[in-house]
Simulated scan of single mutants.
Amino acid sequence: MKLNPRALAGIASQDQLRELRNVEQLVVVGADGKVQTMKAKASYGNVDEVDYYYIVNDSYGNVWDTQSTFPMTVYGVSYKYLEHDITVTQPENGAIAPIEESGIVKVKHGEDAEFTVTANSGYQIACLLIDGERVDVDERYLCTYKFPKVTEAHTIGAVFEEDANAPEIGADKGVSGTVADVIETSDDTEVAAFEKGGFTNGGTVHIVSASGLVTTKTEGTFTADTDGFVQAVKLKVEYEEGAESRGLTLAVKPLDAAKPFSADKKYYALLLNKKTNYYDLFPAALNAAGNLEVAVKPVGDYFSEGTIFVYSGTATDSGTPVTPDTPANPDSGPKSGGGCAAGVGALALLAALPLLRRRTGK
């Protein structure tokens, strides 16, 4: 309800109202001794003048109890949340976010504070520096660190080291990509689950062919070479509104410089299309530097989070164009083997494993 300030004893002038305009709560004591704790919000007419207060009961959402006896005494109560400082040291060859210009992030007492650490291209995370102590992380290129239920000040920093074998990303305007992790062995649980779905042993895929601005897909199968697994690259991709039809390029480097990619083999990248629920197969070209380049487009079909599985092998194109697919049932697994639902374990694992395996502070 609207209260005329002149009706309240002790609030008779605009000067007094100005002093109360930042007050968050009111304690009202009536002549009958009744006490009410309420929230108040000032409404302004002119620039500095308060017309009236909206007073609302803090506990029940009811308006002020008009049965209280005048005159009343009104006490203004203001308060501040207890906050703690997280001092963020912005490292070389990488970044920590969030970060303020002052280098200090304010956190309310008892709340969590989470930070994302990202390595620049050509570098990897060597360790984090938490409250001056070294903390090792499993993720090499992108990770998060959380201070749970903050009750005191903390510091966070990071150390990065060169990584000559780190994959590199190039992206169209409006698209940005970060390498989150690289899986180097086929013994990894995510790769094993992926292969169990049959996508590297004659499983049905959509083969992508790009010619200039035209991209086509045909039905096909893919069979991986013996020991054909190269690596799997986890990406975090973001794109501006309207840029979902654009693309990015991933350059995959040999994990061992003494074992370069073979010019006699053909390499492919498999990536789950989140719209059709099929795995799309992208040819990977060997460039002059000896790296495999894969162009993925449109990014809106595959990201913001995804894993690219790279293999050497043989792709067989049936020549049959892919008919438009209706959006897949999100509860079903990726499609394989002539359209039968297969690879459910792979999809379940991909859904259960977050892109960023979060580490929690002590």
Rank of each mutant, 00 (worst) to 15 (best):
F282H: 13
V230K: 13
N93K: 10
V252Q: 03
T215S: 12
L235M: 10
N165G: 05
Q14R: 10
A232T: 11
V299C: 04
M38Q: 08
A113Q: 02
G132S: 08
E92H: 08
T144E: 15
K236F: 12
D331Y: 15
I125C: 06
E133A: 12
I183Y: 11
S59T: 03
V208G: 11
E244Y: 09
V27R: 01
T276H: 02
E133N: 13
V344P: 03
G170E: 14
Y145V: 06
M1R: 01
L356Y: 11
Y311M: 08
D172G: 07
F303W: 03
Y267T: 05
T360W: 03
K234C: 04
D325E: 14
E238C: 03
G306H: 09
D181C: 13
V137P: 12
G345C: 04
P91D: 06
I308M: 15
E168R: 07
P91S: 07
L255G: 10
F282P: 03
G157N: 09
T223N: 15
K297H: 05
H154T: 10
S245D: 13
Y141V: 11
A224I: 10
N46F: 07
K146S: 08
V23F: 05
M38N: 09
I55N: 04
T221D: 05
T118D: 02
L292G: 04
D325G: 10
Y279F: 11
A9W: 01
A288I: 09
P283C: 08
V296S: 04
S318W: 04
V117A: 03
P98Y: 07
V50D: 05
H206L: 11
P167G: 01
F222R: 15
I207C: 12
T37S: 00
P330E: 14
V159R: 14
E190R: 11
G197L: 04
G203A: 10
P5T: 00
T144L: 06
P324M: 15
E293Y: 03
D136G: 15
R358K: 12
Y311F: 15
Q67Y: 02
L142V: 11
K362D: 00
V214T: 12
G94M: 04
